[in-house]
């Protein structure tokens, strides 16, 4: 099962757990799996369909992944949701 790092604002949903394990072949499926155990997680991350909410970047195994929720994950993957940062 992949490891999902829970962003601080959502740790109240996971009873303070910083990392949780989830099942899925891509980030979307992980989020849906998490939402079953921690209701509200999906609505905090997903805007509509397969689109991540504005302002959030998806990081899988150290890469800011372009495919976002559709990016495939492995059983040993680490997944993060971080604030989007561009620059000047």
């Amino acid at each position: 099962m992949a490891i999902v790092w829970i962003p601080s604002p959502l740790q109240s949903l996971t009873n303070g757990e910083i990392t949780v394990r989830a099942d899925g072949g891509n980030v979307k499926e992980l989020v849906e799996d998490l939402d079953r155990n921690y209701p509200g997680f999906k609505s905090a991350i997903v805007a509509e369909g397969v689109l991540v909410r504005p302002g959030i970047s998806v990081v899988v195994d150290g890469r800011v992944v372009k495919k976002g929720l559709l990016h495939p994950v492995g059983v040993e993957s680490e997944v993060f949701f971080i604030p989007a940062i561009g620059g000047g």
């Binding site: 991540v52 504005p54 302002g55 970047s57 998806v58 800011v64 604030p83 989007a84 940062i85 561009g86």
Partner: peptide
């Protein structure tokens, strides 16, 4: 309503 700037920015 939103236009993306990449990496989640908009």
């Amino acid at each position: 309503p939103m236009v993306g700037m990449g990496e989640g920015g908009h």
